[in-house]
């Protein structure tokens, strides 16, 4: 699991690659800390290379989403593949995440 975070003036660009499984989620919480300090910036998460996500991964995304909403900013998931989309649909997360 690799993550890249780019903090720009008006937004934060994130790209996730590999498998966002339970073990990865344990490690992710630290590397994605900037997303919690985003202020009012919108967050764009590119999922092009994200192959897999577990419920732990989803929970981390949910924490970011709740934080962003509290700050009045957006969190957008981009280029979600079928496997990840299946999980988002099965959990009902498609309705709460903004997906492009």
């Amino acid at each position: 699991m690799n993550t890249k975070v780019q903090v720009l003036d008006d937004k934060i660009l994130v790209s996730l690659s590999g498998e966002f499984d339970t073990a990865a989620a344990e490690e992710m919480e630290k590397s994605l800390q900037p997303l919690l300090d985003c202020g009012a910036k919108d967050i764009f998460i590119d999922c092009t290379e994200l192959d897999y996500i577990s419920s732990r991964g989803l929970r981390i995304l949910l924490v970011f989403l709740k934080n962003a909403k509290a700050n009045g900013s957006r969190l957008v998931l981009q280029n979600v593949n079928d496997v990840v989309r299946d999980v988002l649909e099965l959990t009902g997360f498609v309705t709460i995440f903004e997906i492009e």
């Binding site: 709740k66 909403k69 959990t91 009902g92 709460i96």
Partner: peptide, 8 residues
Amino acid sequence: TTLEANER
């Protein structure tokens, strides 16, 4: 699974 983000 139908709840809003804040309520989930």
